[in-house]
Design a protein around this nucleic acid. Structure first.
Lengths: 220, 220
DNA sequence: AACTATTTATGATTTAAATCATCTTTTAAA
DNA sequence: TTTAAAAGATGATTTAAATCATAAATAGTT
């Protein structure tokens, strides 16, 4: 079991939760859940990478979050009609721990510090989601996305700059909320400026500080 | 006292919370709190209207939420560094109930169903915030904003269509995430189509169903 | 009522990003 | 190991919204 539950539930409750949880294995590209489906529980990523997407109007898809080992997914639909408001798609073969909603709810009610921790977790998700409202120019959004990829995936073993996982250009564009061509051009620009280094499909973040200041609104 | 606390805390806890709460009165245009300030408690609107704003990069301000009687504000900064990530500004003279953080935290820990309700409250806020990621054309965003104004403020007494409170055009633009002139033009367009009716500063929502379908991505 | 503010409105021009059209490179398959 | 398919890259054109400019209308003040 993992992270927030392990840390905030009693040992007995951890055993109880673990007993009722199950392992879910999905392959690269598979949906873990889809918008509109009824929520039957909570997923925690045991090992793997996942993108959370939402539909923009009728046509395009936007990536609103990336998740990796230890991250909780599927909590956004809680309350209201208890349906997923987003979809989750595996970016690589992924193992998840599935906790039935009933068990999760029992644990929240019984472990007040767990309930408190879950509340804070949601608060942090909410703050994180404000990024989506920022409406900065493409360049800044792309920097923000690259930085977020670094935060979630980190650098590859043995490298100080290479992202350990590279989203497709299409996915990067979807996360930045811009068109594919626009993303590619912006990457090329950042590459020319040596803020990043493009190595085929792979991306090196050569100047994290610069990237950070661009994502925070530095104009240029 | 109000809403979620009254409903989910025991009578004894309600008395205790009420005893330690205080009434805060602010005038139209006053800040209730500002980005970066330390969080010392939670505000509940007793009577009044408030806009929650965030800074876009370095220049413009975006309204990310409107709040009225019974609504909780100031919860977004919970966790992390416990600083406000947004500002709250009174849209009219407003009375608020201020609950010190210490008291709120005690209540959450002691009342597990309150903790659960707070978690669900945050989950709903999170879902609501996805609207900001939608990236629809101006027309759709404006419809969304008008509909949200209706949801939060309702219609004026004795009217079936007139918004009970009218944001300035500048604020409407800020909420829609577009420039003032663009908002004005879009309102004029919706007015021509009889979806809304502009009456000086005031706005009538004549066709709520149409407005709803536009906000949900109907193209035109 | 006359005089400033301020707020609302609209036309003209510019611009950033989307769209359209190709082309190249990489990966996968037969 | 050639062929097909997918992913990445770039130039040319269009377009939606921003910006610039200015004019009405409304509200507030002496």
């Amino acid at each position: 079991m993992n992270s927030i539950i392990q840390n905030y539930c009693s040992d007995g409750w951890n055993e109880y939760i673990e007993f009722h949880s199950k392992i879910v294995q999905v392959k690269k590209g598979d949906f873990i859940f889809e918008t509109g489906q009824a929520i039957e529980g909570l997923h925690i990523i045991h090992a793997g990478k996942v993108k959370i997407t939402t539909k923009n109007g009728n046509d395009t898809e936007r990536i609103i979050r990336l998740a990796a080992d230890g991250d909780i997914i599927g909590h956004r639909g809680f309350g209201g009609s208890w349906k997923y408001s987003v979809s989750a798609i595996a970016l690589e073969n992924t193992d998840l721990i599935f906790i039935p909603l009933k068990i999760f709810n029992e644990a929240v009610i019984a472990n007040s510090s767990f309930a408190y921790a879950m509340m804070i977790f949601f608060a942090e998700e909410l703050r994180e989601s404000e990024r989506l409202a920022s409406q900065l120019p493409v360049r800044n959004m792309v920097a923000s996305v690259l930085y977020n990829n670094y935060e979630v995936f980190g650098f590859a073993k043995g490298s100080e700059t290479k992202l350990s996982f590279t989203l497709s250009r299409t996915d990067l564009a979807s996360q930045a909320g811009v068109r594919y061509e626009t993303l590619v051009r912006t990457l090329a620009e950042l590459n020319t400026e040596k803020v990043i280094k493009i190595e085929g499909k792979f991306i090196h973040l050569c100047d994290l500080e610069k990237l950070k200041s661009i994502k925070e609104g530095e104009l240029n």
